[in-house]
Simulated scan of single mutants.
Amino acid sequence: MKWILYMMLFTTPAANVTNKAEKECLSHSDVKQLATIVKCRPEYEGKHIWSLQSASQLEFSNFQGCVATQNKLIANSNVASTMTLRTWCFCDSDKNECPTDEEAVATIRGIRSCELSPTGQTCEDARKTFNNFVGQSQAPGKGQNSTSIQLYPPPPDIRSRGQQ
């Protein structure tokens, strides 16, 4: 079983960034600022026309590695006003070892909730779940041959919870 981080790189024509909020958004480049990036970047991207430039993939042995690398890519590329990424993690197994779609969604929601609010009981409970998540279905005999989940941008309900 392996996890594949699939990335699509999009570009937009160069333009002057003069809006104060956009400048502030584009100044964030640290993984610790990911929650802020997740809140401000979609608004910035919505004002531009994007063209697909390339697609690439990386392989990982576990889900956490896929998510950690995705986080670094998103944070490090945020300062570029003319490019953006879309990423997915795919599990691939020919032995029904991949988690169910529901397990993958629950795990990523836990990871994202901790990114938005790293302290508190909710994050601690989520961390216990995804730290033990090694890729196999938690329900024996109910695994799948493949699982996919889009990691960036996060689902709208995760973004809106971060704004509260």
Rank of each mutant, 00 (worst) to 15 (best):
T100N: 12
C91E: 08
M8K: 11
V67L: 12
T18R: 14
G46D: 07
C89H: 07
L116H: 10
N16H: 05
A14L: 00
Y44G: 08
S61V: 13
K72C: 04
S54V: 00
S61Y: 04
M7V: 12
V38K: 06
L116C: 06
S77F: 06
L5W: 06
N76V: 02
T18F: 03
Y44Q: 10
A68T: 03
A35Q: 05
V79N: 01
S77M: 10
E102T: 14
K72Q: 12
A21C: 10
Y6V: 11
V105R: 10
E45F: 04
Q64M: 15
N62V: 10
Q57C: 00
N62W: 03
S54L: 05
C66T: 04
A106S: 12
C91F: 01
T69D: 07
W88C: 01
A35T: 08
A68F: 03
Q64V: 14
E97M: 12
L34Q: 07
V17G: 05
F10G: 05
T119A: 05
V38G: 07
P13L: 11
I49R: 15
N71H: 11
C25N: 12
S113F: 00
S27L: 07
T122W: 01
E102R: 06
H28T: 11
W3N: 01
T36H: 02
D94Y: 00
K47M: 13
A106D: 10
D92K: 13
A68E: 02
S81K: 15
E59A: 08
C91L: 14
L58S: 13
C25R: 09
R109A: 14
M83A: 10
L34W: 04
N71L: 02
V79F: 02
H28A: 14
K20V: 05
K47G: 11
N78Q: 08
N78P: 09
E45A: 15
Q70G: 06
K39E: 13
C98N: 06
A106E: 14
S51M: 09
Q70L: 08
L52M: 14
G120Y: 00
C66I: 06
C89F: 01
F90D: 10
I108F: 07
E24F: 07
K20L: 07
S29W: 01
L26T: 02
W88Y: 15
S77N: 05
T82I: 01
T107K: 03
N76M: 01
K72G: 09
Q33T: 14
E97D: 09
N96L: 10
C114K: 02
I37R: 05
A68D: 03
I108N: 02
R112W: 09
T100K: 12
F10S: 05
V31L: 03
F90Q: 11
Y44I: 00
T87M: 13
I74D: 03
T18W: 03
S93T: 11
K47R: 12
S54W: 00
V31K: 13
A15W: 00
I74A: 06
A55E: 07
C91A: 13
S56T: 12
Q53D: 14
H28Y: 15
A104H: 08
C40V: 10
S54N: 08
Q64C: 06
Q53T: 00
